[in-house]
Design a protein around this nucleic acid. Structure first.
Lengths: 339, 339
DNA sequence: GCTTGTTATGTTATCGATAACATCTTCTGT
DNA sequence: ACAGAAGATGTTATCGATAACATAACAAGC
C-alpha cells in the first residue's frame, strides 16, 4: 500500500480561491450569503482540485447528521418498499436522507440495528412495528430524537405512531368471510416467533372466530416469516388435508395467498367454489393474478407519506415534540374473485 | 423547547470510570488491550450515563467511515434485493455496513446519488450497471476507493466488475426459442430511455434475430422501467394485435412476463401453444405461477456474495487495488412450461 | 539484579468542517 | 450627507472521537 493520496480539504479550496474556509463553507450551502462572483470562483477552484465535500466533518461540526433512520423487516417486500417510497417522496425537498436498515423480521436483530443507527445520530428514527426488546425500547425512549412506530398501533407507543391495527385486519377478514356465508375458516401464516404483525393479524382472526362461536383451531403456522409463495402452497395442502371441509382461508400475505391459490389450480381445486382464499397487503400480484385475489389494503404508500410529514413537522417545530401523535389508518377489504 | 439535554460524551464516561478518554475509546473496540476489570467499569459507567457512542466523531477522527455504499435501481425488485442480501451476508463479519441508495433506473438520479454517497466517505462503492453520466464516471474514477460495477459487463469498466452480459441473455433466449421451433419472435420491454440493462437485453435479442435473418421488428417499448405486471399485460395485447402470428415473446423481466401470461389466460389464448412467453430474472413468481414461466437465471444472490468477497479482498490488501478484477457470470435459461 | 518485553493506560495533537461573533462594504432613505 | 440596515467576508473556538507516541508496572530471562 502506498500512502493515501491525501484528499483536498476546504482549506485547500479556500487558499486557491483566495477566501477563508468559512466562505467556502457558505458557498457549498444553498441560502448562504455569498456573492455570485465569489461562489463561482470557489466552485471552480473546488472542481479543479477535485474537492469532495466531507459530510462527516460537517456533521460533527454542525451537530446535525441530515438523515433519518428507518428500519424495515425486509428489503424484498413490496409493502415496505411502498412505505419507503412514500417516505422518500415526502422527505425529498427537505434535504434529509433516509438511512435504511433491515431487521429480517427479528427483534434481536432490530435491537442491534437500532443501536448501530443511533450511533450515527439520526435526526429522527422510524421503526416498523410496535413490539421491541426491552433494551431496544429503552434505546428508542432515550434517543433524544423523534421516534415513529409504523405498521402497527401499539398499546404503549414509544413516541409517535402512523399505523393500523393488524388485529383489526384479521377481524375484518372474518367479517367478510362470514358475510359471504363461509363459516369454517382457516388461517395460514409463518411460525409465530418473528413476524409480530402477522401474528397480530392471526390473533385478531382467531379472536373474531371465538367471538362468533366458530371453530378457531384451523391455523397453520409454519415457515420462517415472511413466508414465501411456496410455503403458502405447502400450508394450503396441509390445511385441506387436515380440515378438508374448510370453506375459506386467510393467508398472512398476498404472497402466501398466491402460492395457496396456485396450488389449488394445480390440484384442480376450484377457488372460491371449493375453498375461498384471501391475502393481505394489496400487492400488484393479487390484482394481476388469474383469478384475482381478495385482499386487504392498508395504504402502505400513504403510511410513508404521513410518516414523512410528521417527521418534518416535528423537526421544524410545527408540532410540539412532546405531544404524542397517533395517525391511525383503516385497513380495507378489496373484494376480488377468490373470496 | 428546552435547551438540548446535552448528551454525555466519552469524556463524561471517562471521568465517571476514573480513566482517560483513550481508555474508554479502547474499551469500546473489540480487540483493544484493556483489562477486563477496567472495561467492565467503563461499560457500566456508560450504561449509567446513557452514553451513546458517536460514530460521526469516530469516523472523522479515524478517517474510516466503516461502510460501503451501494446503489441499486429500485428497492422493490426481488433481483436486486437478492444481490443486496448476498452483499449483506458477505460483509456480515467484517464490521462494514452497507449504505444503500436507489437510483429509480435513472442515470441522472444515479449521478446525484453517487455524489451524495461519496461525500460520506465510503470505503468502497458498488453501483448497479455499467452505464453512467460522464460526470458520474468521473466522480467514481476519482473516488479514491474501490469501485465495483455489477449486473453488467461494461466494455470500459471504471474499476472492478461482477456481472454478466445482458445482451448475451437476450441472445440466449433467441437460441432457446429457435431451438423450440419458434421463428416469429417478439420482445416486450419498457421505453428505452432508462433501464439500460433491459435495453441491452433487447439489443442482444434483436441482434440475434438479425444474425439469423429473422424478423426483428416485433418490439414493444412502452412504460417507464421497471415495467409492471399490468404493463406487461397491455404490451402483450398490443403485440398480438399488431403481429397476430407471433409465436414467442421474451419479456424484459418475469414481472412483465407474468402480466403477459395472465392476460393470455384471461383471453383464452393458450400458452405456449398459441404463443410462448419467457421472462428474465428467475423470480419466485415465475416458478410458482401456473403455468410456471420459462426464464433466465443470472445468479442475483451470488453476484452479491462475489461483490462482498471482492470488496473485502481489496480493502484487506489481499488483492492489489490497481489490477482490474472482472468476474463474469453466465446467464442460464430455466426451461419451464410457457416456452 | 538488570535488561528486555508485554500489558495497561495516559498525553497531545489532530481529523475537516461550522457556529457565533466581529468586521468591513455598500446601499437606502431622509 | 449621514445614520442605520443589509450584505459579504474573516477570526476563533469547538464538535467528539482517535492515532501516535509516551509512560508505568510488572513478569520473564540471563
Amino acid at each position: 500500500m502506498q500512502p493515501p493520496p491525501k484528499r483536498p480539504t476546504m482549506a485547500d479550496v479556500a487558499h486557491r480561491a483566495n477566501v477563508s474556509t468559512m466562505t467556502v463553507s457558505r458557498a457549498f450551502k444553498r441560502d448562504a450569503s455569498v456573492s455570485a462572483d465569489t461562489r463561482d470562483r470557489i466552485l471552480r477552484a473546488a472542481e479543479e482540485l477535485g474537492y469532495v465535500f466531507d459530510s462527516i466533518a460537517a456533521n460533527l461540526s454542525s451537530r446535525r447528521s441530515g438523515f433519518v433512520a428507518a428500519t424495515i423487516p425486509s428489503i424484498n417486500n413490496a409493502n415496505f418498499a411502498d412505505t419507503v417510497r412514500g417516505m422518500t417522496e415526502g422527505l425529498r425537498d427537505s434535504g434529509l436522507e433516509i438511512l435504511l436498515g433491515f431487521t429480517d423480521y427479528n427483534v434481536e436483530e432490530e435491537e442491534r440495528l437500532v443501536g448501530q443507527l443511533l450511533r450515527r445520530r439520526p435526526e429522527a428514527i422510524i421503526v416498523t412495528g410496535g413490539r421491541h426488546t426491552p433494551r431496544c425500547r429503552k434505546m428508542l425512549t432515550n434517543a433524544g430524537v423523534p421516534v415513529v412506530e409504523t405498521w402497527d398501533l401499539p398499546s404503549e407507543p414509544i413516541g409517535h405512531v402512523v399505523g393500523f391495527s393488524n388485529a383489526d385486519a384479521g377481524r375484518l377478514m372474518v367479517d367478510h368471510f362470514v358475510a359471504r356465508g363461509y363459516l369454517r375458516l382457516g388461517f395460514i401464516g409463518g411460525d409465530t416467533s418473528r413476524d409480530t404483525r402477522g401474528l397480530d393479524r392471526r390473533r385478531g382472526f382467531v379472536a373474531a372466530l371465538q367471538d362468533r362461536g366458530l371453530d378457531a383451531s384451523r391455523v397453520i403456522a409454519s415457515g420462517v416469516p415472511p413466508i414465501s409463495m411456496r410455503e403458502g402452497a405447502t400450508a394450503m395442502v396441509e390445511m385441506i388435508s387436515r380440515w378438508p371441509d374448510t370453506q375459506a382461508v386467510m393467508c398472512v400475505s398476498d404472497l402466501s395467498a398466491f402460492g395457496a391459490l396456485m396450488e389449488c389450480l394445480r390440484r384442480g381445486i376450484r377457488v372460491p367454489d371449493d375453498v375461498a382464499i384471501a391475502g393481505f397487503g394489496a400487492y400488484d400480484l393479487a390484482e394481476q393474478s388469474v383469478p384475482p385475489i381478495t385482499t386487504i389494503d392498508v395504504g402502505a404508500h400513504e403510511i410513508g407519506i404521513r410518516v414523512a410529514e410528521l417527521v418534518l413537522d416535528l423537526l421544524n417545530g410545527r408540532r410540539a415534540t412532546d405531544d404524542r401523535v397517533v395517525v391511525g389508518m383503516t385497513p380495507k377489504v378489496i373484494v376480488r374473485h377468490t373470496a
